[in-house]
Amino acid sequence: MTLKEKMDDLEHELSKIVGLQELKLQVRKLAKGLLMDEKRRAMGLNTGHRKAPHMAFLGNPGTGKTTVARVLGKLLHSVGVLSSDDVIEVQRSDLVGEYIGETALKTRDKIEEAIGGVLFVDEAYRLAKGESKDFGKEALEEIMSVLEDDSLVVIFAGYTEPMKRVFSANEGFCRRVTNFFQFDDFTCNDLAEMLMIKMNKQDEKSRLRGFKLHRSCTFDAVSEVIEKNSYEKLRNKMNGGLVDHMLNNARENLDSRLSFNSIGDELMTITLHDLEAGLQLLAHRVKID
């Protein structure tokens, strides 16, 4: 595959991701640097050793951190930084044990599983609670000990503010983790775009497979429904997850309003009213201070 084909492949993957324009620019910049280094090596130029690009993904849940991690895993594999494009996702419970000595073993097992690929540590701030008897710090130190090996890439992900505890919990963190990506919350238009994509590109596992939107569910109409029937804190807390809950609730509303005499398209058509009712139900159920 040529360098241009690799960049085109990255652009294709990025095109599937809604929003995050500033982050995409940052990803493109990282990709261009990796590809130019590949060209230099191919021409026999000595570029020196480039360390594994360990990263921190900062932002709220549902903003696409895991998706971007998979895209970067493919990129790092294609340019020879990694021998595999596997992304091993872990949380605190996968790394931290209940007894002395157990945490190091559990964490090492996950590191070994991720060798050659990406270790994605979700909610990484939970490893730095600041409590003297907490074993999370031990797991974090075990991970930090392999960051110089270049045998894998580690991505630490979590809320922006709590992640600062991780930065300060280990003095070598900011020296070893050199790429910081900010994942912004999605706008109402972003969420409407996600909803339209989910309804138009369903796979066999989709709970809404075969269902369609009524013609009144235009992009602008859906965006307006989201803006009017949810509040900013809810959207920022759930981001992409809001769309899934909204659609599931909309289907339930459709089922509730249909009669056993209903036939044809009406059995499979979600209306703007269903979407509105689905989001209102979500906003009622989820209380955020």
Results as ranks from 00 to 15, higher is better:
Gly101Ala: 06
Glu102Ser: 14
Thr47Ala: 11
Gly73Pro: 14
Ala128Leu: 11
Ser151Thr: 15
Gly116Ser: 06
Ala157Thr: 03
Glu89Thr: 12
Val68Phe: 08
Ile143Thr: 00
Leu140Tyr: 05
Ser84Lys: 13
Leu76Met: 13
Lys133Tyr: 14
Lys106Leu: 14
Glu141Cys: 08
Thr47Met: 09
Val153Pro: 14
Val71Met: 08
Asp85Leu: 04
Thr103Asp: 08
Ala104His: 15
Arg70Asp: 07
Asn46Gln: 13
Glu161Phe: 00
Asn60Thr: 04
Ile143His: 05
Gly80Asn: 03
Ser93Asn: 13
Gly117Asp: 06
Lys164Asn: 14
Glu148Cys: 06
Asp94Cys: 06
Phe156Trp: 01
Gly158Tyr: 08
Phe167Tyr: 12
Thr160Ser: 14
Ser145Trp: 05
Asp85Ala: 08
Ala139Lys: 08
Glu102Leu: 12
His54Lys: 01
Glu161Leu: 01
Thr67Glu: 09
Leu127Ser: 03
Leu95Arg: 07
Phe57Ser: 01
Glu102Val: 10
Gly48Cys: 05
Leu58Val: 00
Ala56Ile: 00
Gly158Thr: 02
Glu142Pro: 02
Val68Ser: 11
Ala56Glu: 04
Leu58Gly: 04
Ala69Val: 01
Val71Ala: 09
Leu75Ile: 09
Asp109Tyr: 13
Leu152Gln: 09
Lys133Phe: 13
Ile115Val: 15
Ile111Lys: 07
Gly158Ala: 01
Phe120Gly: 03
Ala69Leu: 04
Leu72Arg: 05
Val87Met: 06
Lys110Trp: 10
Leu127Phe: 14
Asp122Trp: 07
Met163Trp: 02
Glu148Tyr: 15
His49Met: 11
Ile155Lys: 03
Val90Ile: 12
Leu95Gln: 06
Arg165Thr: 01
Asp86Phe: 11
Gly136Pro: 12
Gly101Val: 03
Phe156Asn: 01
Met163Ala: 02
Glu89Asp: 11
Asn46Phe: 07
Phe167Val: 01
Thr66Lys: 08
Pro61Asn: 01
Val118Ser: 03
Glu131Ser: 15
Ile115Arg: 15
Glu138Ala: 02
Asn46Ala: 10
Ala56Ser: 05
Ile100Cys: 12
Thr103Ala: 10
Ser93Thr: 10
Leu119Val: 10
Arg165Asp: 02
Phe135Val: 03
Leu152His: 09
Phe120Lys: 00
Gly64Gln: 01
Ala128Asp: 05
Ile143Gly: 04
Thr66Gln: 04
Leu119Gly: 13
Tyr159Arg: 04
Leu152Arg: 11
Val154Trp: 01
Asn46Val: 08
Asp122Cys: 01
Ser84Tyr: 05
Asp94Glu: 09
Lys133His: 15
Val90Arg: 10
Asp86Ile: 10
Ser84Pro: 14
Ile88Asp: 04
Leu82Ile: 09
Gly73Lys: 03
